[in-house]
């Protein structure tokens, strides 16, 4: 990963730096979305970019998520590389026709004679008290659509490298930015670099069980692993980083080593991405090494509630991961 002596910046700054560096490099890259200009974006991700790149490339839009997605799709069809910011991932529901029926389909449907190189940046997840319509994690919807890639970085380093890779990718890439991660600090090299989209990473090594986690669940899993280490349980944490395409090998290798796996994500369990991960593991060579059933720890099947206690209870917290992992580590022993 990164070297020593690297300066530390936040996840939010890493996203911004990736965009700035790609925009300096390639005139065809531009940012389009609601309030991305003077306002700097609802979360401040594009703060200061208007001054450097001007209103044509840092393009404020009407509140029209379908037309924003269409504008990005059409510009990408022409070979430009738009980065579309949706204010909250929830609002992609309004963009879905353009993303699912146009952007994802056009290449295949038109016989491979075009490509749609665009990025959809989507602030996702709960924990901000924004309630049911501003807190969702909709990755499972999009991984089920051939033609779209889905990326969900968990650290500032990954955010920068994956976003640059996403911008250079020749396909629509849904880039999930968890709102609670925006303030997370970490080492990030100043120069541009890419992380291949199909590359999971072992975030912590351990022999007793594997936790597969992405986005906000990675720092939570790492914290849980720290607590479990004090009890003598050594947890390995694997972050797929990109959900589609998925680096299956890294996950299968880890589970084959530990023989136990806990899959965790914030989105509701029913029909969630964890089911896909479980199926990948169960259908692989890792199955023979399993010492306990594959376990999932997902968000509860409820809309995200407003009240702080209810909101925290709706998605897995560190203590939930600790409890589930402890149980799994002891199962059948």
């Amino acid at each position: 990963m990164n070297t020593n002596h690297t300066r530390e910046i936040t996840y939010l700054e890493a996203v911004r730096e990736a965009m700035i560096q790609e925009m300096r490099l390639n005139k065809e890259v531009f940012l389009i979305g609601e309030d991305v200009g003077t306002y700097g974006g609802a979360f401040g991700v594009s703060k200061g970019m208007l001054e450097e790149f001007g209103p044509e490339r840092i393009r404020d839009t009407p509140i029209s998520e379908a037309a924003i997605a269409g504008a990005a799709t059409g510009a990408a069809l022409m070979g430009m590389r738009p980065v579309m910011e949706v204010m909250f991932m929830d609002f992609l529901t309004i963009s879905t026709n353009q993303l699912v029926n146009q952007a994802a389909k056009m290449r295949f449907m038109f016989g491979g004679k075009c490509s749609i190189p665009m990025v959809i940046r989507a602030p996702s997840g709960s924990g901000t008290g924004a309630a049911a319509q501003h807190s969702q994690s909709l990755e499972a919807w999009f991984v089920n659509v051939p033609g779209i890639k889905v990326v969900a970085p968990s650290s500032p380093y990954d955010a920068k490298g994956l976003l640059i890779a996403a911008i250079r990718d020749n396909n629509p890439v849904l880039f999930m930015e968890h709102k609670l991660l925006y303030r997370l600090k970490g080492p990030v090299p100043e120069e541009p670099y890419t992380i291949p989209l199909q590359s999971a990473e072992v975030k912590r090594e351990g022999r007793d069980l594997t936790i597969v986690a992405y986005s906000i669940m990675v720092p939570r899993a790492l914290e849980a692993a720290e607590k479990l280490a004090a009890e003598g349980i050594e947890v390995e944490v694997v972050d797929p980083r990109s959900l589609k395409p998925l680096d299956k090998e890294t996950i299968i290798r880890s589970v084959s080593k530990t023989g136990r796996v806990l899959i965790t994500h914030e989105a509701p369990g029913t029909g969630g991405y964890g089911g896909e991960l479980a199926a990948v593991i169960a259908g692989s060579a890792a199955f023979d090494y399993l010492d306990a059933p594959i376990r999932r720890l997902a968000g509860r099947d409820v809309p995200i509630p407003y009240n702080r206690t209810l909101e925290q209870a709706a998605v897995p917290q560190v203590e939930d991961i600790v409890a589930a992992a402890r149980e799994l580590a002891q199962e059948g022993r």
Binding site: A67, G70, A71, A76, L77, M78, N97, Q102, M106
Partner: peptide, 20 residues
């Protein structure tokens, strides 16, 4: 630049082509 089968679905895409 192609025909779309979802009624009205080509219109937002047209905005993007024209923007480019």
């Amino acid at each position: 630049m192609g025909a779309t089968g979802v009624v009205g679905g080509g219109i937002p895409t047209a905005v993007g082509i024209a923007l480019a």
